[in-house]
């Protein structure tokens, strides 16, 4: 195939992407620099500096995203590792169970947590029945609730690539290490874990980026106590409406996401190499 035919194949999609994706984003980004009747302006960015509250919401978003990402790794790594050791059939079922929620409405899953984790919910009733707690534990309407909800939605994004990397690790390599007398712990930390590290890092960054744009979960499970940038943007777009300010904030968020994505691409290449 020559150069021009290769390009001919991507041309139709490229046209659509430019018209329905790239141009709208550029237009939105440009809005922050534009003022009706006066032309170019930086006032909307200056507005951000004067009212650092918006930047603090961004900071809060980064913090919550970090917490949710850590929770994801804490649950996802052992899960993927366990799945690697399963038999063929069990592994298939496990993959299906990981994939299934991937495709069930975020809304539904988020609301299900209210029933599971509420004061009169399944978990609290079980805890009290077991005598572990006297008063209900406040799982919802705080950062914990948002973290649980976000971790649940994003877990497949971490587990699937991690699992893919883990099944590529040759068992003979681990057996060789064992035959040389290395204790299991040493094998795990010196041989196995380093081999999964690139995929882990890439998956972690992907999850972190996806956390940044979360909208439904903080709105429902945060009880209004967990300000996230998406919800602030919604307010600025729909309620106030200060689109130019929203555009300035979006630009900063986009830059943060793209910088992290650049890191992800580097690690992802390493992981697949």
């Amino acid at each position: 195939m020559n150069r021009s035919t290769g390009f001919a194949f991507i041309a139709p999609l490229l046209v659509l992407m430019v018209v329905a994706f790239n141009l709208p984003i550029i237009y939105m980004l440009g809005l922050a620099f534009w003022d009706k009747g006066r032309g170019f302006t930086l006032e909307h960015y200056e507005g951000l500096l004067e009212a650092p509250v918006y930047l603090r919401v961004l900071g809060n978003t980064l913090r919550i995203s970090l917490i949710a990402t850590i929770a994801n790794v804490a649950i996802g790594y052992p899960l993927a590792h366990w799945m690697r050791g399963l038999g063929r059939r069990a592994r298939l079922i496990a993959i299906a169970l990981v994939v299934l929620p991937f495709w069930v409405s975020i809304l539904v899953r988020t609301y299900a947590w209210i029933v599971v984790l509420g004061n009169g919910g399944l978990v609290n009733r079980s805890l009290q029945w077991l005598g572990l707690t006297d008063a209900p534990v406040q799982f919802l309407y705080n950062e914990l609730g948002v973290t649980i909800g976000m971790a649940n939605v994003l877990l497949p994004f971490l587990v699937l690539p991690l699992f893919a990397a883990m099944i590529r690790i040759d068992d003979r390599l681990l057996q060789a290490a064992a035959s040389l007398g290395a204790p299991p712990r040493t094998i795990f930390w010196k041989v196995y874990f380093p081999l999964t590290l690139p995929a882990l890092a890439a998956g972690t960054l992907l999850v972190f980026i996806l956390c940044l744009g979360f909208y439904v979960t903080p709105a429902v499970l945060g009880g209004g106590r967990v300000p996230m940038i998406s919800n602030l943007l919604d307010t600025l777009i729909n309620q106030i409406p200060r689109w130019e300010q929203a555009s300035a904030i979006s630009t900063i968020l986009l830059i943060v996401a793209l910088v992290i994505f650049a890191g992800y691409r580097r690690l992802d290449r390493k992981a697949s190499a």
């Binding site: 009212a51 509250v53 918006y54 603090r56 919401v57 809060n60 209004g224 106590r225 300000p227 602030l232 106030i240």
Partner: peptide, 10 residues
Amino acid sequence: VNKKWEAFKL
């Protein structure tokens, strides 16, 4: 007031 409210929420 809206800006103060956002700060309060934080």
